[in-house]
Design a protein around this nucleic acid. Sequence first.
DNA 1: GCGTAAGGTG
DNA 2: CACCTTACGC
Lengths: 260, 260
Amino acid sequence: MKIASWNINSVRSRQHLVADFLRDHAPDILCLQETKVEDDKFPRQFFEELGYGHQTIRGQKSYNGTAIIAKNAPEFADHLVFDEQDGARHVAARHDGVTIHNFYVPAGGDIPDPQANDKFAHKLRFLDDMQAYCASGHLAEASILVGDLNIAPSVHDVWSSKQLANVVSHTEVEINKLEAVRQAGGLVDAVRVVHPEPAMLYSWWSYRSPDFRKNNRGRRLDHIWVSPDLVGRIRHVSLLDDYRAREKPSDHIPLVLELT
Amino acid sequence: MKIASWNINSVRSRQHLVADFLRDHAPDILCLQETKVEDDKFPRQFFEELGYGHQTIRGQKSYNGTAIIAKNAPEFADHLVFDEQDGARHVAARHDGVTIHNFYVPAGGDIPDPQANDKFAHKLRFLDDMQAYCASGHLAEASILVGDLNIAPSVHDVWSSKQLANVVSHTEVEINKLEAVRQAGGLVDAVRVVHPEPAMLYSWWSYRSPDFRKNNRGRRLDHIWVSPDLVGRIRHVSLLDDYRAREKPSDHIPLVLELT
DNA sequence: GCGTAAGGTG
DNA sequence: CACCTTACGC
């Protein structure tokens, strides 16, 4: 069983890339974030023609949007709404007995101060809501949580922990809240199981930073967490950074988890 | 000597096409209209790398803009300003003893009434100014006038003379003024020398009209006129309609004049 | 830098 | 339909 997660930065502008990815890696499940499209405009047929006819989607105009694209029908599909703003930031689906939660955590704006910056306040509230949900035991077994969590927790998840210490995505308050979410769900960071620290791992490189291979100013904002019962089934995790070097790339790369 | 004219509809959005064109047809001179870029943002290096290091350009933000791109240095370069509105609608350059005038005549808006429509009034004034300039004898010898003149004069220059009789670009007042410009300059329509009537000739197909090959609702808005002394040197004129069928095309096609 | 959207021009 | 600009989010 192969499960991928990718912040695609507009699913309609990335059809060339996502077609390459599905043909070359053929995951059973593809979780997308930032689809940036309303449900009735989602390119359903495009994915169908690539063999992914089962699509759990939830989007809105312009911003956000999550989707779980699958070869086979889900046993179950749903989504969470944490607040009025919502933003289509979660979908869930059970495939082959495994429940997959696909999250897109708010980016949080520029200023890491919830008093001065409503977007940062929203990010922290969203993490609290995630924690409460995970604490309720929904993810205790046969569960996977993936997505763009917009936080790079470790010093080995950013190109410079010092220079990013006060930059949104790597602040102490965010890192603590992300860890609280993970612990509330009793989940295991599958990426680090396969690639333990001190390996430097990134999943995102800003469009604004040129020459991403040379300067390599990345951050690991995208994550795959699994419930403890699945840890033994982890066969491999890949971070496909070559997709950042393609024509018209997303600023995020796909992560792929293989389970036995 | 090979001279091309092309309304490119944004030179920055058309680099793929113009590179193909220069490689495949290798004109000595390329006259562009609707470059839509200020001079300091013109892609000078792009043309240099294709072997066109000599660039007589005059543009503005967003609208209009003309350019003469050449392999060799001009002996002379200049431009005309007819009014305060201007719009970067003319450049001229002398290459190999031939003076090339590159015009972009105002489109003229929707309503063919100078009372009701300032844009149409501007178009008519521009044609009067062109006529006055041509009447002064500047184009008597060794001269070529090219460009998007935004008028299709003959019944054989439009897909339906009846349906366009009251449509801007094919009204009687415009056609008469265009003919007056040509006669004032003593110029010869080189395209019709090679492809005489009743051949149907188009250089533009609206983006709004689908299936341009099948429905073929075109108009000949782009022209190449030469002074009488050059008529004997006309070897060929091509209207390269395959460029309308390419990826991300301009709505106009290139015209190419070959002189011996 | 690269997505989205709206409003204007051709 | 496809370009431009402005404004916005990431």
